[in-house]
Design a protein around this nucleic acid. Structure first.
Lengths: 109, 109
DNA sequence: ACAACATATAAGCATTTACTTATGTTTCTT
DNA sequence: AAGAAACATAAGTAAATGCTTATATGTTGT
């Protein structure tokens, strides 16, 4: 169901610590302008701008222009590809571990 | 709770498509020798070996040597850092969306 | 002991990435 | 209209990444 290419993009985008920190700040603050993100960051304004573009392209954040400010917020379905992938493997393992446990109990008695 | 550095490592490791595919194959097959992974892969044996090292270093797989074969399997807590991080943000959003809904209902009446 | 097999390591290379500084572009303020 | 503010884009660069071929290391069967 989840497009593998999209999953790759999401993972690659969030794998970078500074970019992920940016994403987390946007999530925490609800809605932030780019300037707000530049302040309190160690990297330059262009770096922030480039990271925001990456987050946008990955579908992780949405932007809302208001005058000369651009406000960012987390996209509602941002982490869905990641969550889907994880849930798939979690379910898979529950099943696998379930079978393993049953096997162990049978061999033990 | 989840170490950010470890999360970064896990994400970076799984972000690469061929490496993730390798991980998924190990998960599906339960336990595979490296040779088994080389077969049916488009990259060379050393490439596989390097990817396996990366997966090992990230704590995503464990190895079990048996003669000249090395069998790989998914580590039981492999995806815990990722899952923890995701759950944290999921909970966070439920709360945020919950508040938003309450706010909307209040302003509507 | 020796050849074949399974895997790891080394070295090299092209591409990608995460920055930087410099410069646009648009919008607000005065 | 002019300057400042908020952002984006361009160009350059050092480091990281994912591969390759060649070679080493360890193990098994004959």
């Amino acid at each position: 169901m989840a497009n593998p290419a999209q999953l790759t993009t999401v993972m690659k985008t969030l794998a970078d610590p500074t970019r992920r920190a940016l994403f987390e700040r946007i999530a925490r603050e609800g809605e932030v302008a780019a300037t707000g993100l530049v302040k309190g960051s160690k990297v330059s304004q262009p770096a922030i701008s480039q990271h925001l573009k990456a987050l946008r392209d990955a579908g992780l954040v949405t932007e809302r222009r208001e005058g000369r400010h651009v406000h960012y917020r987390v996209a509602s379905k941002a982490l869905e590809p990641l969550a889907d992938w994880l849930d798939h493997y979690r379910a898979f393992w529950r099943e696998r571990l379930g079978r393993l446990e049953m096997l162990l109990k049978e061999t033990q008695r």
